[in-house]
Nucleic acid binder design. Structure first.
Length: 255
DNA sequence: CTCCTGATTG
DNA sequence: CAATCAGGAG
């Protein structure tokens, strides 16, 4: 039961400060949830049932090694799954762990990346490996905020590493997730840039499960739905587990 | 906000 | 040749 929402990030108005006599002072932004807990729960259940039956078996879903998760996320940012599979295996063969990568010569790293393009990201990755090795005792951070301070890690990748490697309860929004949440919950929001994206991040938080373990599956599931069903063009609403309650289903399936 | 990358599409 | 994409950087 969800009788007591334990700690939603913003709900608790930190009792450490002096209790104001007037409650009306509006001490914190106290953002209103975009999605009610009930709606979120239904969404999660349908989504998760679907994922268990339809998920693809991908190598980076079989590991929790932060290094391997990181490599997969960086490669997937720029390349289709089918092609990443090859490069991923080869890259990890040459650099099986963070120390191996950190101690490699730049030319060797670029060699392993050759064919993937976006070589600035390979340089960032190498720099990250050396930074983490020297400054952080070789431990890739758990916290999305800390992750974001590393070269090449933005909001999305930070959430992905926290969630997929450490099974932390962290939201993530990439274009797949943005598209799904936009269509289901916020058809009026402009999913590109600015306030629209901000709102989608808020929605992503709202629909998150309570535990980190469940969040791992949840985040994989939204991305998988966006990749397989809720595609950019001609979404397969007929196969969508969350079409009931989707704000856009009529738009795509006018019937 | 603009710019950047490199594949892909018009 | 230009537009588009997806994330990150500045």
């Amino acid at each position: 039961m969800r009788t007591m929402p334990p700690r939603s990030k913003r709900a608790a108005p930190s009792a450490t400060t002096k209790p104001a006599l007037k409650v009306a002072a509006k001490p914190a932004p106290a953002i209103t949830a975009e999605v009610s807990p009930q709606t979120a729960a239904v969404f999660r259940r349908r989504l998760h049932r679907w994922y268990r039956r339809h998920c693809r078996d991908l190598p980076w879903r079989r590991t929790r090694d932060p290094y391997r998760i990181l490599i997969s996320e960086l490669m997937l940012q720029q390349t289709q799954v089918s092609r990443v599979l090859d490069f991923y295996a080869r890259f990890l063969d040459r650099f099986p762990d963070l120390p191996a990568l950190a101690s490699a010569r730049p030319a060797r790293v670029m060699e392993a990346w050759a064919g993937l393009g976006y070589y600035a990201r390979a340089r960032n990755l190498h720099k990250l490996a050396r930074e983490v090795t020297t400054d952080r005792a070789g431990v890739i951070p758990h916290d999305p905020v800390e992750l974001r301070t590393l070269p090449g890690i933005g909001a999305y990748t930070a959430g992905a590493v926290a969630s997929f490697a450490y099974e932390k309860r962290a939201a993530l929004v990439d274009t797949n997730v943005a598209r799904v949440l936009h269509r289901v919950f916020a058809p009026d929001a402009a999913p590109k840039s600015g306030p629209g994206l901000k709102r989608l991040w808020r929605i992503a938080e709202d629909v998150l499960p309570r535990t980190g373990k469940a969040t791992w599956l949840h985040n994989q599931a939204i991305m998988e739905l966006g990749a397989l069903v809720c595609t950019a063009r001609s979404p397969k609403c007929g196969q969508c587990p969350v079409r009931q309650g989707c704000a856009s289903v009529d738009h795509f399936a006018p019937r």
